[in-house]
Design a protein around this nucleic acid. Structure first.
Lengths: 357, 357
DNA sequence: ATGACATGTGTCATCGATGACACATGCCAT
DNA sequence: ATGGCATGTGTCATCGATGACACATGTCAT
């Protein structure tokens, strides 16, 4: 840390007291034009920059929000949420401190301890690694906002209504004539130890798949429902989607449409299809979820988009509301929606299929 | 900001002075076992947490590194670099403050001002938006490290030797029998206004392409060299690669191999090939650069990998060296290397090609 | 002439942690 | 018994910004 000019030095140079300099800086109170000019000159020549540490210590307000994310490298989703939060924070004069827990509750705990030492004004969790960390902050009376997934009802959250977009996707498939629709997704039981609150995301997507089937008058086929983890660290991302799709293709009656509950899984699905020499959407249609990788895949993936940046923005706003002591901040729910691109098409007719086989 | 217990309160509760509490906290000097026990008990019951702001103000050391990145959402590359830097920083007791300039020099300037006010101990630039921002910090005597691209020679940098991996890629193509090898890449003249230092990345990759051609005894074909911006904000990512590949396919003698100097471009290339009904690597081989999207594409992309996290790690280390006043920290250069996956194969024979046509 | 008010500026305690310095004991060696 | 040293603890200035408070002087209305 270098030692830039202090306000005291500026005052000395301008031949006034620190209070007067402060008045000029804050633009409050009376200061004669002459004095003001001298002070402004001193500020300019010394390239004075206020010391935020001193100010924050004095004002007991750090103007900083801690943002805990799973792992910003694991899924572009987190980067987008973080960016949304950062943008609004900046507009409000706040800054965000980002922290990756990488799935480790222990690491998350350490990160939070540092947040507290740093006296952050609030903490955003874009998925907490451990509920205990969330409740600990609540006990410490530090405002908390949960983004995407809520670990507790004791703090407000910003979540997505996964069902609307997912149902739209199912309707899209059905309208296109598909009757053999498979699901490749995260298993509610395996995700976050099946925690009843945390698994909401998977429950909603899975529920919408089944509801969509029913709404379309289609029966539920257990062989078409492939649930598992999103990815295991041993493998790379996407491997799960690939494996599931291989299994589906090897089955007796392969589906003509696949709904993957995450673009990373969808990427794996596309890989398996590609490897099998089939084409999307000619032979099989695919819809993903998230709209993270979608635009980069071949073909460009039709997917259910989540308002990622908005999640971050609304998360910050809820945090700010708590900081300012606004009435009880309620939780927010944002919609998801289907983005149609090139991976979902009409069900192949029998003749079409024969021709390609 | 809540008001947690202060060291003063702990001292009062334990019936000692703040100096003694500080001794226990720091583990220095003499403290009787009895006193120590009382203090430790007080710390525990009050859940005391030191105020980092006060400490940093007093010690004139913020233990914070500012990290300016282009836009963490634009390319997974940045997220990985940031993560690498964060990891090492944490190990050294530092934290990183992330800031996205999103390509705006003005925004970058604001971010840096805040870094200075925050009294960061050093600043990492994973690509500065403006050279002026880098030199400004240098003038302020704040240690700077440039990662991936250097805007000035006046501060150390961690860069990648793009040529080694790129040459490896070219050799791979040639070994596989390809003779019509195209390039889809960033144009050195268009990138960062063609700044002689900043364009080094593009120069190296483009240079390696040409050198690889020559080394393989192949002549340079201007029609095979497609240069442009990586992406324009009006479009989405990857569009540039798609457009270039469409043009190549529409040409008289389409290439049998394409070297894309960035995975995002490669993704677009794959989309165009897919759309044309051709297969990779059967009809056309593709190699990318970065290893960001590669593993998610179909087929899994052979690509030149950059040591992204290492860039961040080494960047932090160079910053730390400067902070600690170690001798003149010299710049570092990391190698790139080819990662073979499924998108590069033998050149199709004439018969193979006829069969598919 | 005097009180009321606008204008202009300075003093200083405060935020919390730090560590230099001072000041106690008690014990041992000379 | 006296100096030297280990042991144990307290006092207080400091880091830089903030803003309440006090204290000037000048102007105007009554």
């Amino acid at each position: 840390m270098t030692k830039p000019t202090t306000l005291i030095e500026v005052a000395r140079i301008a031949g006034v007291s620190t209070a007067t300099v402060n008045r000029v800086l804050k633009g409050v109170g009376y200061v004669s034009a002459d004095t003001r000019a001298r002070i402004e000159a001193a500020i300019k020549t010394t390239r004075y920059r206020p010391n935020a540490l001193a100010r924050e210590l004095r004002k007991q307000r750090s103007m900083t929000i801690g943002h805990v994310v799973s792992a910003i490298t694991a899924n572009p989703f987190f980067a987008s949420v973080a960016r949304g939060a950062e943008d609004v924070a900046l507009e409000s004069g706040f800054r965000t401190l980002l922290f990756n827990h990488n799935g480790s509750a222990e690491r998350e705990r350490q990160g939070i301890e540092r947040f507290i030492e740093r006296r952050v004004d609030a903490v955003l969790f874009t998925v907490a690694a451990s509920r205990a960390d969330v409740t600990m902050l609540i006990e410490e009376k530090i405002p908390v906002v949960q983004v995407e997934r809520a670990a507790t009802r004791d703090a407000p959250s910003v979540t997505v209504d996964n069902a609307v977009g997912a149902l739209e996707a199912m309707r899209h498939f059905i309208t296109l004539g598909h009757r053999r629709i498979a699901l490749v997704g995260g298993d509610p039981d395996q995700v976050y130890y099946g925690d009843p609150l945390m698994r909401a995301v998977e429950d909603e997507r899975l529920g919408a798949y089944r509801a969509g089937l029913a709404a379309g008058g289609l029966s539920w086929n257990p062989n078409y429902e492939r649930l598992g983890q999103y990815y295991r660290h041993e493998d790379g991302a996407g491997v799960q989607g690939y494996t599931h799709m291989r299994a589906l293709l090897a089955g007796a009656e392969p589906p003509t449409a696949v709904f993957a509950t995450c673009d990373i899984l969808a990427a794996g699905v596309l890989q398996a299809i590609y490897e099998a020499g089939l084409r999307v959407p000619d032979d099989i249609s695919v819809i993903g979820f998230d709209d993270t990788l979608a635009i980069n895949l071949a073909p460009r993936l039709t997917t259910v988009a989540q308002p990622m940046e908005e999640l971050g923005r609304e998360g910050f706003k809820l945090a700010l509301a708590q900081i300012e002591g606004d009435a009880e901040p309620r939780s927010i729910r944002l919609p998801s929606r289907l983005v149609r691109r090139d991976s979902a098409g009409p069900v192949p007719s029998a003749t079409t299929r024969r021709k390609r086989a």
